[in-house]
């Protein structure tokens, strides 16, 4: 057999596409998966941001009120010190409800993707 012909055959066979295939709606599936992940991240950031804002607002309000009614704040601190476990439990429950509302339920029950924010842009919530 001619050497050149054999070369051609082999080179041609190198160019034949392998049989591996993806499903017809692969691109849609990937996009949906990406959207879901991004939304989960956005929701989590939104939750953390809101939690931070609420914590800061409460601290600032408490700090300001300290100058108006020092006795009340001191009583409040004494109450927290006396009921640490209960306070932690209530805060935890409230925080969990908030987390479920902002993140978990959205993750579990959202079927259709909503439009994403620009990448890297923080969620506008206030």
């Amino acid at each position: 057999m001619n050497n050149e012909e054999l070369d051609k055959i082999i080179e041609k066979s190198f160019r034949i596409k392998p049989d591996f295939q993806l499903s017809a709606d692969f691109a849609q599936k990937v996009t949906h998966s990406v959207v879901r992940r991004e939304q989960w991240k956005n929701d989590l950031y939104e939750y953390l941001y809101l939690t931070g804002v609420i914590a800061v607002l409460l601290s600032v309000a408490g700090g300001l009120y300290y100058y108006i009614d020092k006795v009340l704040i001191m009583r409040f601190i004494t109450f927290i010190n006396g009921n640490v476990l209960q306070v932690i439990f209530v805060v935890f429950i409230l925080n969990f409800i908030f987390f479920a509302d902002r993140v978990l339920l959205r993750l579990l029950f959202r079927s259709l993707p909503r439009p994403l924010q620009r990448r890297g842009e923080r969620v506008g919530i206030l």
């Binding site: 849609q28 990937v30 990406v34 439009p115």
Partner: peptide, 20 residues
Amino acid sequence: NGNMNAFTFLVNRYQKLVVH
């Protein structure tokens, strides 16, 4: 800029390369 149609198109354009 958040255009997911563009991403779907990118996947369609390059999926053969990735599959191979």
